[in-house]
Design a binder for these strands. Structure first.
Lengths: 324, 324
DNA sequence: CATCATATGTCAAACGATTGACACATAATT
DNA sequence: AATTATGTGTCAATCGTTTGACATATGATG
């Protein structure tokens, strides 16, 4: 027995297909009696409307693409979860795309999403913006990333967060505070607010700046190697600000391996991180708020509501203090 | 300028729509010359076929639903990432659904997925199986969960893993090994291999069994409260096996708060956990293998390949030793 | 020269629903 | 009695693509 379709329901209920459609979409007049009869028929035939057909006709899929590096990182896991949640509550479905920060991969996914007629896209991956974004006349919202003048950005206050983290370490009288970041030198030159916050704050207190770049695309072991190397080459380091919690965790593992006692502050503050690393301070991004705002903006744009140019939504961060 | 469609490409290339379709689907004969002309036209018009229309016609969406509690837990985050990855490589798209282990929510999602004509579903959430699974004539694969006799299961060797964890603690001469689990008493009575492994192994060595149930649906603070309460009420506890890494992390935080030094072994062994908690031993599930196998089974089932009844695929685990 | 493979075209049906136009009831309201 | 609101039906077009049937034309092959 194959899937029941609208016509089958009509026959079974003894009404016309149009009437069934009217019942489904609450259009025109309809007596309670026939409405019930149709509902009964739908139940008996286990009928549900084919959303693909609906989408084709209506030109709307209620689908939103989620472009993120991947969801193993608890920050992305949490924000994707909250986004999916907010979308689901408003009748939208989430197409998950792990770009691994690979521009080629991202472009492929982007084309796939367009071909699948998604109504909107929320981008959290950190590659160079593809020109496909321009082509598409689509609702796009970026998480902490510049795509184009037309794409609104939702992010936490990276600069203030970095200042907060650095200042916190300075307040504890640390003098040689190193920065660990996933950004390369080239990326930093283009502007990286977390790095700038660190630099400005250390400079203000006449403290030295030392930056260690970690390439996230490399293997875990390689990353650790890199951290260990840095720590042995910079033995006077007494505190570290890591621009991401996963990195902070890796760094902490290395300091422990070396028997060092170095204060660490991370960035992100996902719930899982807070539970797993109870001894690393961190800057908490308001992940849930960011997710909800991103979804609101996306759905507004889908609804065709006015979208201001170059709009940035910067949400406040907070410091979560933990003792080693 | 709205989206180009197949007919537009045909006009622009000076051929018939059928020819364009033939070019797209590599059917029939076609000279290289017209093929090129068509490709050029597609590029110039920025054309890509509407997958919704294709799906409607072909009765195939290349869509797979992913039903998981959520992706904040690194284990789920990692397995979902790997699944999405494997699916993407084989031309399938992932529809992410966070059930939060809520049966009602799961059922709603299930109906949504059916309405959207997904070709298959991979279920990792841990609710009671909905009867919608029976109704659907669909490719379904479960991760570590019994759904029905027809649904194949991919899981790690929970029993062996639990024995391994417990034995490891016993080998270290611990005598009062407590079990922390997210399962309720009722769930355990229905069968929980991780719990059974713990019980059998402790019994074999004439050690006592002490089980603490933590309700994951509760707030983090409540969970901590519960752990602290247990630890103060059972002060002689010298080791703990937690049936999940996130739980293990929470437990470790509590032991630190209480100034206790208790050995902990977790379960899951996601990469992120290994990086963040460098001092908690754990049982590593072969997450990538599980994901790939689940995808293989799903795609096999979609292809209509023979699916044996009641098939369970149990993959081996390993112990990752860490010192406190 | 007959035959066949190649290359393209025309046409229409199909996928499963939605929607607008219109007709025809019946019942309630002036 | 005339008008209006309500309830339902028929019919056909539409969404964008695929596909099968069939026609036609060219060049190559036997």
């Amino acid at each position: 027995m194959s899937k029941a379709k609208l016509g089958d329901v009509a026959k079974h209920a003894g009404v016309s297909p149009t009437t069934v459609s009217r019942a489904l979409n609450n259009r025109g007049y309809m007596s309670d009696k026939t409405k019930e009869r149709i509902n009964k028929a739908m139940q008996e035939l286990n009928y549900f409307p084919n959303e693909v057909a609906r989408s084709l006709h209506g030109g709307k899929t209620n689908l939103v693409g989620l472009l993120f590096p991947n969801v193993t990182n608890p920050f992305y896991g949490e924000i994707v979860t909250e986004i999916e949640n907010a979308l689901g509550q408003r009748g939208y479905k989430s197409l998950l795309c792990n770009t691994y920060n690979n521009p080629k991969q991202e472009e492929q996914y982007l084309n796939m999403l367009l071909a699948n007629q998604v109504d909107g896209i929320i981008v959290g991956s950190r590659t160079k913006p593809s020109n496909v974004y321009q082509k598409a006349n689509l609702a796009v919202v970026a998480i902490d990333r510049i795509i184009s003048a037309k794409v609104p950005i939702v992010r936490s206050d990276n600069y203030a967060g970095a200042c907060l983290a650095t200042q916190y370490l300075i307040d504890q009288k640390f003098k040689r505070i190193a920065l660990f970041t996933g950004s390369s030198k080239e990326e930093i030159e283009k502007g990286d607010l977390r790095v700038e916050g660190y630099i400005d704050t250390t400079k203000k207190h006449n403290l030295p700046q030392t930056i260690c770049h970690i390439d996230f695309e490399q293997e875990d072991m390689y990353q650790k190697q890199r951290v260990l190397q840095f720590l042995t080459q910079n033995p006077k380091t007494d505190a570290i600000f890591a621009t991401g919690d996963v990195l902070a965790g890796i760094v902490q593992g290395c300091t422990q391996d070396l028997g060092l006692k170095i204060a660490i502050v991370g960035y992100d503050g996902s719930k899982v991180f807070q539970n797993l690393c109870t001894n690393i301070s961190t800057i908490r991004q308001p992940i849930e708020d960011m997710a909800k705002l991103a979804v609101d903006l996306t759905l507004d744009a889908i609804a065709g509501n006015f979208q201001k140019e170059n709009k940035e939504f910067v949400l406040p961060v907070s410091l979560i203090k933990r003792s080693i």
